[in-house]
Amino acid sequence: MAEAIGVDLATWQGWETGRRPLANVKAGALLNLRRRLLAMGADPHALHLLDSAMDADRIISATVRPENAAPHPLADWVHTRDTADMIVWALNGTVPLVLAHHSTPGRRGPVAKAPLLSASDRRLFFAQLRDTAESAVRAGDGGLLLHRQALYLCSYDRTPEAISWTGHALHTRRDLITVRGWTPHWATARSTAVALSRLGDPQPLLDFIDRAIADDDAAETANLNYWAYWLGSIQEPQPNDGFMRQGTINWEPVRLLRGLTAGLHQAPAYVDLYVHSLWALLTTHRWLPLADPKLTDKLHAHTCGLLDHNGISPRSRRELNAVHYVLRENRA
């Protein structure tokens, strides 16, 4: 591989073992590496994740080994699901969805099955992240993005003490969920409700949908913009949450439909948020079912299954019926 890429053996071994972080490579050399790997048959989707992987490395390193006076990277930009998936891969070994179906070729000698942090590093990461979240609160509005993203990642720590801390921290922000419509704290309230749902408390998310999204045009737009960015339909990196209020952003509706359809299958804890978002997307873009008939058939079958289930909220049932109608009327 070193010969094929055009680097010395020690450099290649350093990249593979992590002794030489890929993020430290010069921009031109990194671009050349990407192109060479692509020409050699590497999966384009896996190559695309290099950016998210380097972002995850930076977030983990800055949390475990913080530098004095250096801003935390979680305060610099709004991270995406790909970046969050990479971080979670290192924290609990859960393979990112985009890589879940990739076969791993056999390797000589002992090879880790995941880029999993050691138990001590995981404990340190979450302890430092909790401190970061608390200090961000004291920074006022200037710490909103850092607090929101740090607290969201804290909810992945499943130790009893951490669950207790995270639950308490989230509940102290519960008042944000009761505010109607759009506010500067809307994204924080949304992340809080989602994290509480992951911890087994679905009611705040149901309340948030009813009070802070439904029947408010600005909040409905913000919700779809958030999803579009999170799921990769908005490609441009965003420095803060302000993009959610920018009206109609140039994102790909079909790609967003695919992401929401996949999430409806894969994230049962958030089914009500996925259902409402699908309803809003298909209400706005009624032509979407015609763009991908196979996806439409898959979504149609899944909505039928959900409608036969008694575990969804009354709002979700009404919206699923509306989604079901749009799908049925616009199937190719």
Results as ranks from 00 to 15, higher is better:
131 D>R: 10
225 N>C: 02
194 V>K: 09
48 H>Y: 13
77 W>C: 00
73 P>S: 04
46 A>L: 15
217 D>R: 12
123 R>D: 15
11 T>I: 06
192 T>E: 03
121 D>H: 13
64 V>A: 08
172 T>C: 10
85 D>N: 08
172 T>P: 09
163 I>M: 15
250 N>D: 15
303 T>M: 14
215 D>W: 08
90 A>E: 07
228 A>R: 01
62 A>E: 01
196 L>M: 03
60 I>Q: 06
120 S>L: 14
146 L>W: 03
151 L>V: 11
39 A>F: 13
318 R>P: 08
103 S>A: 12
132 T>W: 00
223 N>S: 12
80 T>K: 04
291 A>L: 11
127 A>P: 09
91 L>E: 03
152 Y>V: 10
133 A>Y: 00
230 W>H: 11
215 D>H: 10
118 S>A: 07
150 A>V: 06
178 T>H: 11
269 A>D: 11
299 L>C: 05
30 L>G: 07
158 R>L: 14
92 N>D: 05
326 V>C: 05
72 H>P: 00
259 G>P: 10
214 A>C: 15
36 R>G: 09
118 S>P: 12
215 D>Y: 08
6 G>R: 00
30 L>A: 11
179 V>P: 05
71 P>T: 01
92 N>H: 05
241 D>M: 12
56 A>F: 02
213 I>F: 03
60 I>L: 08
94 T>N: 04
275 V>M: 04
79 H>P: 13
141 D>E: 15
311 G>W: 06
147 H>T: 13
127 A>N: 09
308 D>W: 10
141 D>L: 14
81 R>W: 13
194 V>H: 09
42 A>E: 05
208 F>L: 01
44 P>R: 04
268 P>K: 04
104 T>V: 14
232 G>Q: 02
108 R>W: 10
246 Q>E: 13
131 D>W: 08
176 L>I: 01
77 W>L: 00
239 P>F: 02
137 V>R: 12
207 D>H: 03
274 Y>L: 11
256 L>A: 00
179 V>K: 10
200 G>N: 12
119 A>M: 09
104 T>L: 13
33 L>F: 03
55 D>M: 07
245 R>E: 13
106 G>Q: 10
204 P>E: 02
57 D>H: 00
10 A>I: 11
131 D>Q: 12
186 W>H: 04
76 D>L: 08
127 A>L: 08
154 C>D: 14
75 A>G: 03
39 A>K: 09
94 T>W: 08
